[in-house]
């Protein structure tokens, strides 16, 4: 009898743990997400980017850093599909390897920003009062700068470089995450199940970590996805100003920056990396747009 019940329970679609619930909601969400062909296209490009980055050594036709001054500034041809740059390096291969840098930036920023935003937001929302006021005031200060300008100021302080650009972008992208996590926490704070756990004697840290954070996670993940296009553009902007990745790294923004001196004669130097940035950022925007429609039916 008992086995029958547990069997029945196991086969039904009712989730048993909150993590299972999270996975289930993500699953149904993914199915609804792909209903929109534009969102599907966005997802496809993002997957493609992952594959390109993963298999870069096999996809690249040349060494991305190997200079060959005899072959500099060649227009696109059968051997160099997107042409060569001022040092004779193959632009296609540099783009392929550049995808790794782009993903590196996105991943690192997301990994830094997610936990910081969650921590500040949930602590702020859970405790309220002075802590909340202080944290939200700090958040306001960061939000009141346009992100590129604030990132510029941070890179100015830290000095140019890829890692510093990542830190600068992370410092400018955490506040919206914190606000979101705070809003979610405020809704949860007085829920019955939270009160129940509190009455059982759970510490604040346990309530936040084990009960509030998992509930905030899905919307924070969506928000992080929506941020990725912005991260790409800010990183490219910093690269273009010469403050992000430094030569000879094949970062797309930096490639545009160096190609600028030759752009009137050799348009492919700037056209190809710019198209790559646009494609990837568009894909993340389409994906984020689909996710938002999914979560907020009013925007449809």
């Amino acid at each position: 009898m008992t086995t029958q019940i547990s069997m029945a329970a196991r086969t039904s679609s009712e989730p048993h743990t909150r993590y299972q619930a999270l996975w289930l909601s993500l699953g149904t969400g993914a199915r609804r997400l792909l209903h929109n062909p534009l969102t599907g296209a966005g997802l496809l490009v993002v997957l493609l980017l992952l594959l390109v980055a993963l298999f870069a050594p096999w996809l690249a036709t040349h060494d991305p850093l190997a200079q060959d001054l005899n072959r500099s500034l060649h227009a696109p041809n059968a051997d160099n599909w997107f042409g060569t740059d001022e040092f004779g390096r193959d632009i296609f291969s540099r783009l392929v390897y550049g995808s790794r840098i782009t993903l590196y930036i996105i991943a690192l920023v997301t990994v830094i920003v997610g936990p910081i935003g969650l921590a500040v937001g949930t602590i702020s929302g859970y405790f309220g009062g002075v802590v909340d006021m202080l944290f939200m005031r700090i958040t306001d200060i960061f939000i009141s700068f346009p992100s590129l300008v604030l990132a510029l100021a941070f890179v100015a302080a830290l000095g140019p470089g890829l890692e510093h650009a990542v830190i600068a972008i992370a410092l400018t992208t955490w506040p919206p995450i914190a606000r979101l996590a705070r809003a979610e926490t405020l809704q949860l704070r007085n829920a019955d199940f939270i009160v129940a756990v509190q009455l059982q004697g759970a510490s604040s840290a346990r309530v936040i970590l084990r009960h509030i954070v998992p509930m905030c996670l899905s919307s924070v993940i969506v928000r992080l996805t929506m941020n990725m296009a912005g991260i790409i553009l800010t990183a490219a902007g910093l690269g273009f100003l010469g403050l992000g990745a430094q030569p000879p790294l094949p970062e797309w923004g930096a490639m545009i920056s160096t190609g600028r001196s030759y752009m009137m004669e050799c348009w492919w130097l700037v056209a190809a990396p710019g198209l790559a940035i646009m494609l990837v950022s568009l894909a993340f925007n389409l994906l984020g747009d689909g996710l938002r429609d999914l979560l907020d039916p009013r925007s449809e």
């Binding site: 534009l38 545009i256 752009m263 348009w267 940035i277 646009m278 950022s281 568009l282």
Partner: peptide, 25 residues
């Protein structure tokens, strides 16, 4: 509506400095 949505997403997604250079070219 869909066409306009895609156009405006393009507007969000293009690096403005790059469009500037392509425009100059």
């Amino acid at each position: 509506d869909h066409v306009i949505r895609v156009i405006s997403l393009f507007g969000y997604s293009t690096p403005v400095f790059w469009v500037g250079m392509i425009g100059l070219i």
